[in-house]
Design a binder for these strands. Structure first.
Lengths: 205, 205, 205, 205
DNA sequence: CATGAATGAGAGTTCATTCAT
DNA sequence: GATGAATGAACTCTCATTCAT
């Protein structure tokens, strides 16, 4: 059934196209100002068409949110080859920040915006977030086992580290770094991550 | 000029009244649902009147944002009596988080929402934020002088600490702590702050 | 306060204007097809303006529904001067039908459409309808007291009479009299009402 | 031509299938909410297919309307065995009402909704309605011949009776019996029908 | 100074219908 | 014959903002 296959493919492609368009619009005008109509206009389809692929605006949002985690995980994958567990965590921090700054709208969707957390799929358990967090906890445990890291609760350490890098990203994305010269910011952020690692990695306690 | 003075005073008072009403509405229904009309209704003036005192909705937002810093500074004031500089920083962290959780709307205005940062007054320099940050830097320097704290750049340490507590607050306020049991969250947050302090305060390096 | 009075008057007038426009649109395109936009267009105001005077579409509907009863009661008023109670009931029937045929949209609003019965004011008690019904019951009782009418339950008789004239009106308005030649219909309707009266008025039983 | 026959048969069957689905949807969600898509979904065909069998939504409506008369006539059939012509008419009234209350959607289609009367087939002559009416007229004539009924024009008597029972059904279905306690309504309706019969059947005049 | 009626633009969403395949 | 993706027009309703008074 060549025809059926092609149709199926086209359907998938249009879905992708919509998501891409939505992402573009989100990026350009922000979530608040992103409307179904703007998305439709951008991909040159009618607003109604979008509703053939997504039940509502939030469904698009949630799909993008889910994919964003895929991308982040993809960015984390190469770090698994780093042997030194402390260095691995350090690189996770830098990778995380780079992701946030390179793909700000994705990052907003994942960790800042309220809307995606209202999706039903996420109401009880936020699978994507949970998975990412456990990934970090695991890395911390390994560093602890290697006796290279603070022996405090690995969850607390992971939370400290995550909240710290998220804080850097969130403050930056929401324009709260005006007290720094713009050119210094990247170094300050990087320095801050390294300071954190340094802090947690000083021998056993 | 008694009359002119009285008029001036009345003008200031109405301005205050609008801000108070806006804050109330804002707190009750959240930023998305806060409309000029609701604010006007609450203070029993017409929508048009509000535009005599503020150029637009964002101007109100910005003003509230500024006030919010006053409140936070007020909450910080008692901490000045704490002699131990490390303990002082630790208490700053806890006070900051408590403020964020007790007055989430104010906190959003100060550190999360985009809108207030679009005000002209803030474009080049974000005075309020800067002042608060310097306050933290100062505390760090004192801890360093007392040889109780990491000797890394005080700006970097302050940034690490701030981003960390902001990260905790922001993740919590935007519902990203679904991976934790709700009753554990406060302890986790507190634990995370203390871990951070512990991390930076361990002797010279 | 001449100005305030004029403004008040203008407000009332626009409200009336909207209701008139709504009635026109209802009459022309029927309730289903009557939209806020069409009403707004007809009176040359913006759709939003209508919402300053009515909370929603149903509120307009309900207001018209209420007024329609006022009109019907006005049409009934002169009948009070008829001494003969049976003749009075007969005239009520004819007046009722005439009202239905002369002002079909009002009649639809009062007795056929579903929407107006969803208004909160009407959910428990449908005051207008109840009042009209009691008016008829009263007339029946007088005819019975004069020993001119069937001695069955006055409520049942009133219901029979009302349902009968409503049936005539409703079948006609919804185009169910195609089995009759159009020119005969008025006579048939009138004949039917008179037959009903004749039927109930034949002495005691 | 076995093939042609089979195709013809299949065509008829699908048509039936659509009508059945439409009736189901119609009954479940009501006229307002019944959409072509819902009908298509229910029978697991595409919306486009429906347009191969019916020119538009109203055509489906009209067809169902026609079928509904078949059902009503089926309900009337057993009454033919009743010998007493007056009792027969009385039972027709009760059967009619029962039909209206048991199958409100069918009843709406037959006697209340505007849409089905717009079909071309019905523009000049409404065959189904006409037939039913004549059936009633015939019954009246028999009652008159037996000297058991008012000798007024049988058409007028039939119209009175029909309009009366329709009025009861229509007022009830459109929620206009709020002035009665809900539990009394069935008795009131039944009483009203009997009163009507009583009224017309009292000897010659 | 203050009003508040009015607007225009736009929001998300739905639907009967069409038409290339 | 059947599909079903796509459309275009429409829906109700909301809001920040303006401006004649």
């Amino acid at each position: 059934m060549g025809i059926a296959e092609r149709k199926e493919r086209e359907k998938v492609e249009l879905r992708e196209h919509i998501l891409q368009g939505a992402m573009d619009v989100f990026t350009e005008v922000g979530y608040e100002q992103a409307t179904i109509r703007k998305i439709a206009q951008r991909i040159e389809y009618s607003p109604g068409t979008i509703y053939l692929y997504f039940t509502d605006k939030d469904a698009i949002l949630f799909e993008l949110h889910k994919r964003a985690f895929g991308e982040l995980e993809g960015a984390f994958a190469p770090l698994l080859t780093i042997d030194d567990p402390v260095e691995r965590i350090r690189q996770m921090g830098h990778t995380y920040i780079r992701f946030a700054l390179d793909k700000p709208m994705l990052y907003e969707l994942m960790f800042i915006l309220q809307a995606p957390m209202k999706a039903e799929e996420v109401c009880d358990d936020w699978e994507e977030g949970h998975r990412s967090f456990l990934f970090l906890v695991e890395a911390v445990k390994q560093a602890q086992q290697a006796n290279r890291f603070s022996q405090a609760s690995p969850e607390v350490i992971a939370l400290s580290f995550w909240s710290s890098v998220h804080g850097l990203a969130a403050l930056y994305l929401r324009d709260r770094f005006k007290m720094f010269a713009e050119e210094e910011v990247p170094q300050l952020i990087a320095g801050s991550i390294d300071a954190m690692i340094h802090c947690f990695s000083r021998g056993a306690d």
